[in-house]
């Protein structure tokens, strides 16, 4: 069990300018699990996700201390490109590139140097199948991706991430813009992906976390209050603040 973490953070502290956004986060992500991260707004959930693939560094004032391990290696040993290839992210709103459905998914392989057309089509098809979108779009691959519905677009984003063959997938409140039916489809896709990937799901929606995740972490004001198996966390929280949050006393 000791070595079986995919991601491990040790004493992770994150700052935007002088603002201390995450405080001493120690957390592990196991293979094949969906780790839910819940907490009220501004509790540092998104910052945590984006620390894992160093997207936070797109902000000029960002700095962090502590260590993050991916498969036992400190992530600073990896280039940004390789790290982000290994850790894919799905953003809050479906964000597709203004190109065709096919090109959206093919973009990742293309930038990673896969030029063989057949190989690319194969990757695209496989990624779309895994994201449970293939049946709906297989006849309209050259169409602009913006014509897809919101839920389809979000699954397209998942497919786009899968096409670069990551090890971990991060979801940043990725269902917040979707209706219940689309959400259900996206959640289905996530369950199927457990066979291959570790997944981290940040959500404002505690119900979704309890539905989807295997383990769950509760963040509050930049601190990791509690982490444990989802069922335990929701039925028998150890910390009073967790209890307050999931019973809806704040947030």
């Amino acid at each position: 069990m000791v070595n079986e973490t995919v991601i491990k953070t040790v004493n992770l502290d994150c700052f935007f300018g002088t603002q201390h956004v995450l405080k001493n986060i120690n957390l592990e992500v196991l293979p094949h699990e969906i780790l839910g991260i819940i907490g009220p707004a501004n509790s540092g959930k998104t910052t945590f996700l984006r620390a894992l693939n160093r997207l936070n560094y797109l902000h000029r004032t960002y700095s962090q201390t502590g260590e993050i391990f991916l498969d036992g290696r400190e992530i600073h040993q990896l280039t940004d490109n390789l790290l982000r290839k290994k850790i894919g992210i799905i953003f809050a709103l479906p964000q597709v590139l203004p190109v065709s459905i096919f090109d959206n998914v093919a973009y990742g392989p293309k930038v990673h140097g896969i030029t063989n057309r057949q190989a690319v089509s194969q990757l695209v098809e496989e990624a779309l199948k895994r994201a449970y979108l293939w049946e709906e779009v297989k006849d309209r691959l050259p169409e602009p991706a913006v014509r897809l519905s919101g839920g389809q677009q979000q699954r397209l984003c998942i497919a786009r991430t899968l096409a670069v063959e990551p090890e971990v997938i991060l979801y940043d409140e990725h269902c917040s813009g979707l209706d219940p039916i689309s959400t259900a489809k996206v959640e289905d896709a996530m369950q199927q992906l457990k066979a291959h990937y570790a997944q981290i799901l940040v959500t404002n929606n505690t119900k979704q976390a309890s539905r989807v995740s295997d383990r769950c972490a509760f963040f509050l004001m930049g601190e990791l209050v509690e982490i444990g198996p989802t069922h335990d966390l929701f039925t028998n929280p150890r910390d009073k603040r967790t209890d307050d949050y999931i019973t809806g006393r704040f947030g």
Binding site: N53, L55, L58, D80, N81, L82, L83, R84, K85, K86, G88, I89, F91, Q95, L97, Y107, G108, V111, H112, R160, T161, V164
Partner: peptide, 10 residues
Amino acid sequence: REISLSLGAT
């Protein structure tokens, strides 16, 4: 830009 970078593009 975010999409592209998050996919590991340079």
